[in-house]
Write a protein that binds this DNA or RNA. Structure first.
Lengths: 137, 137
DNA sequence: CTAATCAACTTGCTTTTTGCAAGTTCATAC
DNA sequence: GTATGAACTTGCAAAAAGCAAGTTGATTAG
């Protein structure tokens, strides 16, 4: 029950964004959906970073309440649900692109996914457009 | 002692960014420094949102360790310290701009600082350049 | 020169959030 | 009708956040 976010609303746009996705997991969920095309709970669970199941459920609920994604039954598989990004969620594409570029510039780790960074650097507009139109990878 | 971040390094640029500023406070600190020109601990403490002192100290240390800011004695006031954003920290300007634009588009609260949003919308390049050059407001 | 002040923290303690493991529900599949 | 799989929920321990009070080392005021 994460009901009360102690959000004294400062009105600042940065604070507004942080109240929605200012945590360790939300943007990774959105990344999986926007970039990798993941749409189900179980696929989100087995992502690269290993979110735990209760946190995933909590975050999905929060993101849904904030209007970044929707949850519906899968018409082809009635026991499964499909999560979809809304326009509000897909509109985070430019922010995600900036984040990728910033990290690409400063993350010197050997594991850094420089191929992914190069993709954004090479054609940022296409990267953003694909997400914003909801196209799959 | 926040030594161990349970950071299994996935190599993802998004995850890298989140490991540095993926919390409720870091970007607000950077906002205060980049946009409002705040440079001291006590001024950061009395910001709009009310961070508590131990958390502020912890975050400043972390951001310093990650190379986003530096800490030095104030030459004019030897009992005070001056925090300054590094190029790595100032390079978050485009990300901050995107965040402001996104929130400006979707935050319908009456407290929303639409004047600040309009400023970024009106001349985004100037907004970013001022931050990236370290110019004060 | 001594006391009060101030900036920048630190420490101790309570509350909240996270993480992990195990259990639940309900719709198929065998 | 038993097992399986998807999507969660629950319980509990560990970590992080929040709050208040205390510490340290300069000034500054008297």
């Amino acid at each position: 029950m994460t009901r009360k976010k102690q959000s004294y609303d400062s009105g600042c746009p940065i604070a507004y964004g942080l109240s929605i996705f200012g945590d360790q997991w939300s943007l990774l969920i959105i990344r999986d959906m926007a970039i990798k095309g993941v749409r189900t709970y179980s696929d989100l669970l087995t992502g690269w970073e290993g979110i735990s199941t209760n946190i995933l459920a909590q975050r999905l609920k929060h993101l849904e309440e904030c209007g970044l994604l929707t949850k519906e039954r899968d018409p082809d598989n009635w026991r499964s649900f499909v999560y979809e990004l809304t326009p509000k969620g897909r509109d985070l594409a430019p922010l995600i692109a900036e984040m990728v570029l910033w990290s690409g510039k400063y993350n010197t780790s050997k594991h850094a996914m420089s191929d992914a960074v190069d993709k954004v650097r090479g054609d940022r507009k296409q990267f953003e457009d694909r997400i914003m139109k909801g196209e799959l990878p």
